[in-house]
Every structure is written in C-alpha cells, then in structure tokens.
Write a protein that binds this DNA or RNA. Structure first.
Ligand SMILES: NC(=O)c1ccc[n+]([C@@H]2O[C@H](COP(=O)([O-])OP(=O)(O)OC[C@H]3O[C@@H](n4cnc5c(N)ncnc54)[C@H](O)[C@@H]3O)[C@@H](O)[C@H]2O)c1
Ligand SMILES: NC(=O)c1ccc[n+]([C@@H]2O[C@H](COP(=O)([O-])OP(=O)(O)OC[C@H]3O[C@@H](n4cnc5c(N)ncnc54)[C@H](O)[C@@H]3O)[C@@H](O)[C@H]2O)c1
Lengths: 211, 211
DNA sequence: CAGGATTTGTGAAATTTATCACAAGGAATA
DNA sequence: TATTCCTTGTGATAAATTTCACAAATCCTG
C-alpha cells in the first residue's frame, strides 16, 4: 500500500522543513545547510539529509540546499501546488475556527461545503458558505467532487459522518473527533489527537513531581 | 530526565486506552482483554500489554483487566485526577473554540486566565472570563499559580507568549502555533501539529495517483 | 588551478519500538 | 480436585528509525 515505505515521520517532518525554509527565504537567504535546518527543527542533521533523500537529491556538497528550490520541491512532493476541494462536517466551535483559518486556503484546501445536523444552523451562512443538512453529505460532495473531508462533529457522530463522506467518494479524512474511525482500505485518515496531546501534557507534568 | 524511559508513544496510547475503557465501561462490561483493547485501538495486543506493564501489573491471566480499575489507574498515572490551573494566550478563532470546549474541564484543566494583545478584545468577557492584556501574562499567572499555558496566538507571537508564560512560572505548554518553541530545560512543550497533519493528508492523497 | 574548507549522500552501527511466541497464572466447569 | 481453557507478562526476535562517520563532490581563496 505504501510506496517504497517512506516513514510517516519523514513526511511529517517534510512539512516542518517547508515551514522553516519559508522563514529562511523571507529573511533573504538563498542557501541553507542540513545542519542549520536541523538546528532550527531541533533534529539531527543526518536525519534531515536522510529525509530529503527519500524524495530526490536536492543538495550541493559544500554549499547546501537552494532555499527557494527546495521549498518549491517540497510543496510539489506534498501535493500542495494544486487545489483540493474539501468538505467540513460539524460546524461547531472547532468547525467554525477551522472555517475561519486562512491556512487551509493558503495550502490549497478549498472548503466547498459545510454540514451540520442542527436544524438551528442548517440554512444559515458561515464564512460565505451555506450550512447544509448532514443528510445530504454524500450527494452534495459527489456534486462538488470533494476529495477531502474534515470531521469536527462530536465523537458520537464521527463514524456516521465518515461513512457519509466515504459514500460520497472522498479519499482522505482529517479527523478531530477523539475516536478511532473504521474506514475501508484506500481511505486515508489523519487524526488530530488533540485530547491525547492534552493528556500527555498532564502526564509529563504530574510525573515531574516524583523526580 | 525521563524516568525509566517510557516511550512517548506509549504515553499517548495510554490516553487512547483510557478513552476506549470509558466506552466499554459505559456499555456495562466489567472486564476486557488486551486483545479486545488492541482491536478497538487498531493495535497489536502484545503492544497493549507492554504499554500497560510500563506502569504496573493490572491484569489477571485468564480473565483480562478490570475495566473500571484500569480506567482509574490510567487516570491517576496521567495525573488527570487533580485539577490543573491553565492560562490561554490568544483568544482568536481557535482560542475561543478551546475556551468553549468542555473536555478541558472534564480532564481537570481549569482555564483561569485568558490573554490577548488586541485592545478591541482586552477587557471584554468570554465564557465568563475577562480577557487580560498580554503585557500582564507573567504577573497574572504568578498570582493565580497557573501551571500550564496554551498558546493559540499567531506563530509570530508564539515565542513571545511562551517566554512570558515561562517567566510566570509555568511548567508545561500546549502549543497550537506552527513553530518550534525554544524553551529552557525543565519546561515540557507539547505541539499540536495541526498544519503538519493537514499537509500529510495532502501528501498521501497526491501520492495515491502515482500508484 | 591547487589546496583547504564545507557539506552532501550514504553505508554501517546503534538505538528504539513493535511483534512473536510461550511458560505460567488463574478462572470455570464438572 | 483435576482438567480445560484463556489471557497475562515477558524474553527473544524482528522491524523501523535515528545517529555516526566518512568518501566524494563542490565551493572558495589565493
Ligand atoms: N473545541 C475544542 O477545543 C476541541 C478540543 C479537542 C477535541 N475536540 C473535538 O472536536 C470535535 C468538535 O468539537 P467542538 O468543540 O466543535 O464541538 P461542538 O459541539 O461545538 O460542535 C459539534 C458540531 O457538530 C454538529 N453535529 C452533531 N452531529 C452531527 C452530524 N451527525 N453531522 C454533522 N454535524 C453534526 C453539532 O450540531 C455541532 O454544531 C469533537 O469531537 C470534540 O471532541 C474539540
Ligand atoms: N484556527 C485554525 O483552524 C488553526 C489551524 C491550524 C493552526 N492554527 C494556529 O493556531 C494559532 C491560532 O489560530 P487562530 O485561527 O485562532 O488565529 P486568530 O488570528 O484568529 O487568533 C489569534 C489571536 O491571538 C492574538 N494575539 C496576537 N498576538 C498576541 C500576543 N502577543 N499575545 C496574546 N495574544 C496575541 C490576536 O489578537 C488574536 O486574537 C495560530 O498560530 C494558527 O497558525 C489555527
């Protein structure tokens, strides 16, 4: 299923490198070494090089990497040079924050349809989009050829929303609900483990007192 | 620094087990096997057992684990049985969603102070809390003995907010801004890598077409 | 253009993390 | 109580990931 087994962690770090490269580029530098990238990312420089080499040879010995070229390359590798139509399910507190976040559009994720099951909300507009009834998720996203779904419903409704999204032909899900979604193979789920992170923080704080 | 090097991943999974145990408990079951926990979490059963054994022996051969006992044990291990006073910096879209999220309180994280630098916002109330000026972060949180800070400011202000929080005596930070925070040793930072997750999803979708 | 200074890409080694597989413990039944 | 069945905890093994360390490539200076 995975092509040539590139570690998930490497893919995630690619995103970090891209962000750092942007900062370096905006500061006016044209080249950067793996050592500097590593330092800024809090990593080992060999790891930076290994990560990049999974995707091609971008560096020049003695000089490092062309900042803008590498930034462009990573953008393309990650598929962030093309627009992706997205649907949002659950227009609650978090859903509305996501809707207002310009970072989605900047990365080419265009929110095309938003859904809720609350009849107080359905029909109203948010950020220029009419909130649609969750009953129509699959038909609406088929119509709009949506490829990615965001789940920001309560956990109890998350599997239901996922099923509807998949029925509508979606291929990837960004899941904010604290629940393990069951999806057929071929569907990519990325969990934003917000609650887990919170609890990890609690663990590391409470442990401190024992030391 | 780490006590007996327990993998970070194991700690994160502990949180997942706890969530699943709650579901099983509410469904009326009193015992559960590592096999069942593993299945629900999408993991290997040996891993579940290994994870749990890092923290003690909770199971009974032939029977499995006492659901409520294990749930209580994990809650305690993670320090979620005590209240932790929290401060939020950046009362924007995301900050307000977090403020409205009951899950914080449920886990014992009590938001005691909220800060912003926007003078339109400072002085107004949100969820019963007055928005305070970011200038006073350190003094206010010293006063309230806050132990955890949440950063939901734009990335450009995140390091500044972190510094102020640390100055005020905070020990842990939950960071939502896409930036690597520099903190002195002894301060725990947990990043919620929202943008990275989003970009990972893009990567896995764009790769699909090549296969 | 030679020589010194860098920095890449990459095998090999080390470390970390996950899985296997099974002896031993305990429950349940008769 | 003996027997059967199940499931834990764990040593051994395997797999994945990170780090080391260095030859080869390129830059830069004089
Ligand atoms: N807000 C946070 O800070 C936060 C933090 C951690 C996790 N989460 C998780 O993110 C998710 C959303 O959180 P929230 O705070 O926005 O919750 P919320 O209750 O504010 O919003 C949920 C929305 O989903 C809608 N909904 C319910 N069932 C639906 C369905 N079947 N189809 C479509 N929409 C449906 C509700 O009407 C509501 O508008 C939850 O799963 C929550 O656990 C949120
Ligand atoms: N909203 C999202 O869906 C989303 C998604 C991914 C990442 N993030 C990240 O989360 C963070 C918050 O996002 P947001 O959408 O809420 O942004 P936002 O612009 O809506 O809110 C940011 C808030 O921080 C305040 N602020 C600025 N400087 C400050 C300072 N020095 N001290 C205190 N407050 C300050 C602003 O006045 C504003 O109220 C950002 O770093 C963003 O990149 C947000």
């Amino acid at each position: 299923m995975e092509s040539y087994k590139i570690p998930k962690k490497s893919v995630e770090r690619l995103s970090i490198y891209k962000r750092i490269l942007k900062v370096i580029m905006d500061a006016g530098f044209t080249t950067v070494s793996s050592r500097e990238l590593a330092e800024r990312a809090g990593l080992n420089s060999a790891q930076v090089r290994k990560d990049l080499v999974y995707f091609g040879q971008f560096g020049t010995p003695g000089m490092g990497y062309q900042v803008s070229m590498l930034h462009r390359a990573i953008t393309k590798i990650m598929g962030l040079h093309k627009k992706i139509p997205v649907a949002l399910t659950g227009v609650g507190n978090l859903g509305q924050a996501l809707l207002a976040y310009p970072g989605f559009k900047e990365r080419g994720f265009i929110i095309e349809a938003i859904f809720d099951n609350d009849h107080e909300k359905v029909g109203k507009k948010k950020n220029g989009l009419k909130i649609l009834d969750e009953k129509n998720i699959s038909s609406e996203i088929k119509k709009k050829k949506v490829r990615v779904g965001i789940i920001a419903t309560p956990p109890s409704a998350a599997q239901f929303a996922a099923n509807k999204l998949i029925e509508g032909g979606i291929k990837g899900i960004l899941n904010f609900a604290p629940i393990e979604l069951k999806v057929p193979s071929g569907i990519t789920v990325v969990n934003v483990a917000l609650c887990e992170k919170l609890e990890m923080l609690s663990y590391y704080l409470s442990k401190r007192k024992l030391l």
